[in-house]
Simulated assay, not measured.
Amino acid sequence: MAQKQVRSTPSSARVYRRRRLAVLIALLVAIGLLVWAGFGIASVLRPADPGATEQGTGAVAGGTGSASPQPSQENTNEPTPEPTSCLDGDVSLRASTAQGTHGPAENPVLVMTITNEGKFDCSVNVGTSQQDFSVTSGSDRIFSTSDCVQDPTDTEITIKPGASETARFTWTRVRSAPGCKVINAKPRPGWYGFTAKLGDLTSENAKFELK
């Protein structure tokens, strides 16, 4: 039996053209995405400001990091000098509180700020063996972190010239005594003073209020 020849109808031809058009559109979209991705990668790798990288602070476009200057060939084999301990006068200490007045349900956040006032990098021991946050009311000694320190530690950090490091302590409005003795009396509303200590350094007294 002879097979009948199937002729393409106009409707089937239109379907075929639409399929080809759909494939072509999808291909163009894919190419567009590849080109966009290529520009995205280029923008990430290309510094936003060619001169900024020479200073070591140039931001990289499309990223969140910063570009660091590459060491010259002649300096790559030179050892990096170890920072020396900070000398007297190199470091300043400042006491402050996160806010000046505290409501009945607010615990003061005591802030110790250490600043390198010298011209060179230097290291300082900021461990619990050295630091102390103390609160007074006039001549009355209210609280000190050194009263209850267990297993004091030493922690050396390096501070760059003009840079500062901070340590924070939240005081929960309790009294303390040497040897970590329990004191039931609670500090009353009024003005208090916070003094920060780090080794032989003592800050000026910072005033704050409890409501």
Rank of each mutant, 00 (worst) to 15 (best):
P71W: 02
I183Q: 11
V126H: 01
K4E: 15
T76N: 02
T53R: 12
G103P: 01
A30P: 06
T84H: 10
A206I: 08
V15H: 08
L198P: 02
V91P: 10
Q131R: 14
L45Q: 11
F208R: 04
D90I: 07
E54V: 09
Q55V: 13
A30I: 14
G58E: 04
R20D: 09
Q131V: 15
V182D: 15
E106T: 07
G162D: 06
V35I: 15
R141E: 14
V135H: 11
D49Y: 13
G32L: 00
G118T: 10
A61Y: 04
T76D: 10
A52M: 03
V60D: 11
T195S: 01
P108M: 07
E74Q: 14
T195R: 04
D132K: 06
P104V: 09
T202W: 00
R7A: 15
G162Q: 06
Y192K: 00
A2L: 12
E74L: 11
G40Q: 12
L45S: 05
K186A: 04
E117W: 06
T53Q: 14
R188S: 07
V6G: 02
T9R: 04
S137Y: 05
W171A: 01
H102W: 10
L34C: 08
A42D: 15
G118E: 00
T202E: 07
W191V: 15
V111R: 04
N77Y: 10
G193W: 04
S11C: 01
S176L: 05
F208E: 01
G89I: 11
A98F: 04
G58M: 05
E82Q: 15
P71Q: 09
G32Q: 09
A48V: 13
R18T: 15
S123C: 02
N125D: 15
T136K: 03
T97R: 00
P178L: 03
G127R: 03
E156H: 06
T153W: 12
S137I: 05
F194P: 05
F143S: 00
T84V: 13
E156D: 09
G127Q: 05
S164W: 05
G190Q: 03
V44D: 07
A95I: 00
P10Y: 01
R188W: 07
L33V: 08
G138K: 00
K181G: 09
G190S: 03
G162Y: 01
A177F: 12
I31E: 09
P71F: 02
L93F: 04
S96Q: 05
K211I: 06
T170H: 08
K119V: 07
N77R: 09
L33M: 14
P50H: 03
S203M: 04
L201Q: 00
V6D: 08
E156Y: 10
